[in-house]
Amino acid sequence: MAKGIWVFAEQREGQIKKVVFELLSEGRKVADQLGEELCAVLLGKDVAGLVDSLGEYGVDKVYITESDGLENYTTDGYTNVVTDLIKEHQPSVFLLGCTITGRDLAAQVAQRLETGLMTDCTGMEVVDGQLVFTRPIYAGKAFVKASCPEARPVMATIRPNTFTAEAKPKTPETVKVTPDIGNIRQVIKDIVRQVSERPELTEADIIVSGGRGMKGPENFKILEELADVLGAAVGASRAAVDAGWAPHSMQVGQTGKTVSPVLYIACGISGAIQHLAGMSSAKCIVAINKDEEANIFKVADYGIVGDLFEVVPILTEELKKLTAQ
C-alpha cells in the first residue's frame, strides 16, 4: 500500500523556497494524523547543504538527487527523476508549492503516473482517512473541496502563504539517489534573472501595489520607498502594466499573479473584479484612493480617501518611525 507524505523541496540557486517550509509544517501534522512518514525530495546541483534547513521543519527523510544536469529546472529532467522516485517508493501523497516550477512539474508527474492533481489549493484536511483539498475556482469567486479517492499518489500544489511555517527541528535520515535524468528535450539557451532585493510577489508577506492612479512609471518610486520600509514586494494592476509602467511579472489579478499576503496596500487601484481575483485572499487590505466610490473600498479593511501622492510618503515616514522602535 502506498505510504508517505512527500513534499517537493523546490530550491532556486541554493535556497529552499519558503513555501516548502510551509508545506513541511502542515505535512507534519497530516503525517502524524495518518501515521505516515514525512519526506522531502530535493533535486539540484550541490544541494546537500540544504538538508539541515529542511530538518528544521520536522521532516523524517530527505531524498537527495544531485547532478549537473539538475542545476537548472527542466520539465523533462525533473519529471523523469521525480516520477522514477515515486514509482520506486510509492508515497501516498505528493505536495508541491504552487509556484511556476511546482505547477509545471506537477502536471507532468501527475499524468505520467496517471493520477489526480488539485492545483493552487488553499486548504488541506484529513477526512475519514482521506486528504481533502480546498481550491479557489472562478478566480476566488467560489471554492471546491475535492479529493483523489483511488489513484496514488494524491497530488496537490498549494498556494504560497496558505500555511504557516513552524519550526520543529529534527535530524532527518538522508537517502542519496543516483538519478537517471534521461532525455531532456527542453534545451535552456539563456536565463535572465532580474536581480531584486525584494521578496517574490507570490511569497511576500506584504505587497504594495500601484494602479492607473500612479500616473506614470517614475512614480512607482514612492511605492518602492514604502516597500523598502516594510520589506515588501511591489505589485501593479493591469492598467499600470498595459500602460508599460510595470512589467507583467508584477501584475496582480486574474490574468496576473494570485497573491495571499498578510497585508496588501492598493494605491490608485479602483478594485475591478479581475484585480480582486488576484488578491482577495490577502488577510488585511488597505486602499488609498481619491474616489470614495471606488470598488476597492468594498473589500478594504482600512481605507483612506485621498491623494496617494500626499498619503503614501507620509505613511512611509510614519511606518519608518514605528518599525524603528
Partner: peptide
C-alpha cells in the same frame, strides 16, 4: 481521478474603516 465533494461561496468581505482626516493625519 479527482472527485469534487462540495462547492461553496466565499464569505463576502466586510468593508472596513475609512480613516477620516487630512492626509497627514489619516496616514499617521
Amino acid at each position: 481521478k479527482v472527485k469534487a465533494i462540495s462547492f461553496s461561496l466565499p464569505e463576502p468581505r466586510k468593508a472596513g474603516k475609512i480613516i477620516p482626516g487630512e492626509p497627514a493625519e489619516a496616514a499617521r
